[in-house]
Design a protein around this nucleic acid. Structure first.
Lengths: 191, 191
DNA sequence: GACCTTTTTTGATAAATATCACAGAGTAGC
DNA sequence: GCTACTCTGTGATATTTATCAAAAAAGGTC
């Protein structure tokens, strides 16, 4: 069953009819996560896309020195997965973790037989999701490549100001490819 | 007509039958490029994927200070495009340019009616290509994020040594997110 | 082979950012 | 409201890498 709580987020990606929604419902499973719980762990296989109903997730790589690098944050109404791990069917390099108590819907893509005609609504929905996720990662990386730390912070201010409210400075720093200290100084106009 | 020169590269991605190859042939157009010619220019729309028969291409972003940043190199038997520009149907941020005299095959994806059933061989071929391209960009960016300049050079030595033969130090440097001078010093063990 | 152009190397210096150490704020639990 | 814990801010310093300038090497052309 697709809750009214997430219906809006599903329809925003693909305008399913009421009848189609019923067909698609079995693909969705609700998961409750406590703060700090891993939804996908580095090294695990990834067969799902996740939709956040409430709360928030972060996706990060572990570096050899023990620190982690945030690649992506996912909030209410947004989707995430490790697309590389999913497509290559190889262990995920990414960990996806709840930043607070979070409700997610899992779209388990391999438990169900793939429809023959991939122009059906569900397949198109999944393809659109995949495209959104891949493009947003690529845009983020492009932004990092094209800008210095101060410009990256200004980019967040202009384009994703909600991140400043929702994410700790430490998490935001690695997302921007800099240290906590540097971001703190940028934020307080020390540069 | 699909030349025997590229047939191998097409079949490597999808095992078309001889009959299917005939169906698919009209999607391919041969283009000859002189060294330095732009195949796709920043600001242009992008409706194609390109397959290199011989020669080589580089894909780069122009930075505001006039320098450019190489994102990708494409050699014989490989494919490239600006996937973001193609999917979003927006002007390309990327320029794709011939590094030497180059023969490419253009797969113009919008000049032909989309088959209804996207599980047909050609659609699957295109989807597989898209996935390859997106993943290779993501892997490259991940590599840059996870490694310092010396490690990035060692990564190339271990994983893409042919780049050292085929690409100038200057082009390789921006691909690795560093300056020519730094790459030269790394290569000569000054770090 | 001489000449011109481009690429690579090297040294000196400057700039940016990280690292380290610690103080101060904020927050959660009791 | 106190305590412990985590997060943020600041200064001092170190490190990394860029920048600038110029020489050396390599490649192309006639």
């Amino acid at each position: 069953m697709i809750d009214s709580s997430i219906k809006e987020y599903v329809l925003k990606v693909y305008p399913f009819s009421e009848g189609e929604l019923l067909t698609v419902a079995p693909y969705f499973h609700k998961i409750l996560l406590n703060r700090g719980t891993d939804l996908l762990r580095e090294g695990a296989l990834c067969n799902s896309i996740y939709l956040v109903e409430s709360g928030s997730l972060r996706s990060f790589y572990n570096k050899e020195d023990g620190s982690d690098v945030n690649l992506h944050f996912t909030f209410e109404g947004e989707y995430t997965t490790s697309f590389m791990a999913y497509l290559n069917r190889e262990p995920s390099q990414l960990t996806i973790q709840a930043m607070e108590d979070t409700v997610v819907w899992q779209l388990n893509l391999r438990n169900y037989p793939r429809p023959k005609d991939s122009n059906n609504p569900f397949s198109t929905y999944i393809r659109r999701l995949a495209i959104r996720l891949l493009i947003s990662t690529e845009e983020h990386y492009n932004m990092l490549m094209m800008n210095n730390p101060v410009e990256r912070y200004q980019y967040i201010l202009s384009n994703k100001p909600f991140l400043l409210q929702k994410v700790s400075l430490g998490h935001l720093a690695s997302y921007l490819g800099i240290t906590r200290e540097t971001l703190s100084r940028i934020r307080n106009n020390k540069y």
